[in-house]
Design a protein around this nucleic acid. Structure first.
Lengths: 258, 258
DNA sequence: AAAGTGTGTTCGACACTATCGAACTGACGT
DNA sequence: ACGTCAGTTCGATAGTGTCGAACACACTTT
């Protein structure tokens, strides 16, 4: 197990939060649906939902419930307060403008990679981004992050989320992943050659943050995504890696002055 | 009071959610800070936070806690599932492209207006948008919505959120607001002449949704925002109102076919 | 080095309350 | 008028959320 067994939790709140996540995934559900799903009495579920509605975390619509738009607002505020975002955004914008490609800023959390900001240049690929949550093993951003985490944390993450494949190229083997991370450490950048999505290739560089009191030093990464057709030769193997690690480095430096 | 007194709530969960909203507003806080703020024992707060962390709604950083990036993701998913967004987005894009101005899509919830999508054309004003939550009385979007709500709901909202002023032009008087809403109903569009922000003017049209089982029929609006310098003559008083209500109408129609 | 602050954390006991199931309402269908 | 779906209320019991005091730990300060 990861860490969940020790200490005491609050049962009632756990239920409420379970309902929230369930509603988030399902999108829309009725009281009875939720009650069935959580193995709770309809009445109990009712009280939970009323509490959630009161606190404006949930909304009634079309004879049922869904999560509130507060999530959008809170997420937006959270991101705009993050240091990595503040100093990273202008860099992403510049890279997107100069390369004409799609440029993304990712932050690690709970073993996932969250797309926190993106900007697409002229001829950029069309690929859904900001707000998305991705696994770390199947894309350049994620691997750039993993490469700079301690082996214990990598173990923990792999154990928790597994190594599911989304294309034929996805790395699904742990030792292969370790080798990949090793070279990523050496080169300072990580690559993704259609491992996440057919036809999509990426280069990413890690953003190591220093104040890093406790845990690990890396928590973010910056990437450029290009269509596979442009993922060749010096452009993809030399030029873009330079651009990306340059930008990431700038972010790291600016981050040190809070 | 609004509705809060009747029925039973779950105390423990209320606390947990209070902590969440507090963390959302504060951005970052320690256990003791939260405990002080909520008038709860440090130990109790600790258990709540542990529960929240477990459920991945909260994250430990820099000797303290903040809400998780899950909020961003859940908010994003929620929005992309909303019908108004799906059919509204392309219209917003088109209006932004054709007018060259900033175009916004808003959805009402809990008496607030949430900016759900925006797109800015060439010479558009720079004004923070998506994810923002606004009062309804001080901007065109909000007034377009209010104009189509029942008087009871307007009463409720005004009582709950008041009519605070953000510029010298903000409507702070209830009867003045009613008059404004009356003309908005007549004209089919609502205006904002620097009532929310100095130098910013808007025109907005309501998007009435029909499936509207229970409550009120309106829940969204679409607007164009321009710098005050361009808010004159036919352009602002005739042309933009036409563009905006055309687009809003299209959305309404498409929404009827689910 | 020892005393000070600030974290987060554990413990045990009591009062409180979250929980359940059954019974109720109210809308839509038929 | 009946059925079925939604959400809602009720009362009793078992369970647990709550508190405060004491704890460990990492730091400055003295």
């Amino acid at each position: 197990m990861t860490k969940a067994t020790d200490g005491k939790r609050i049962g009632a709140s756990e239920r409420t939060l379970d309902i929230l996540t369930f509603l988030g995934e399902a999108g829309h559900a009725t009281v009875t649906e939720v009650a069935d799903r959580l193995d709770a009495a309809k009445s109990t579920t009712h009280y939970h939902l009323k509490t959630l509605e009161d606190a404006e975390f949930v909304v009634r619509t079309d004879g049922g419930y869904r999560v509130s738009l507060n999530f959008l607002t809170m997420g937006h505020e959270l991101v705009s307060r993050m240091g990595v975002y503040q100093v990273g955004k202008p860099k992403v914008d510049r890279v997107a403008r100069e390369t004409g490609e799609l440029c993304i800023l990712m932050v690690e959390e709970h073993g996932y990679g969250y797309y926190v900001y993106d900007n697409r240049g002229e001829g950029a690929v069309n690929f859904d981004t900001t707000g998305n949550r991705k696994r770390l093993h199947d894309n350049a951003l994620g691997k750039a992050v993993l490469a700079n985490l301690s082996t214990e944390r990598v173990d923990e993450i792999v154990e928790r989320h597994g190594l599911p494949a989304t294309t034929a190229q996805t790395i699904t083997d742990r030792t292969a992943l370790d080798a990949e991370l090793e070279t990523a450490r050496d080169e300072g950048v990580a690559f993704d050659r259609e491992e996440q999505l057919d036809g999509l290739c990426c280069v990413a560089a890690p953003i190591r943050s220093t104040h890093a009191s406790g845990s690990d030093p890396v928590e973010a990464a910056l990437s450029v995504a290009v269509p596979a057709s442009r993922a060749r030769d010096d452009y993809f193997n030399e030029e873009l890696p330079h651009v990306v690690s340059d930008a990431a480095n700038l972010v790291e430096l600016e981050l040190q002055e809070y």
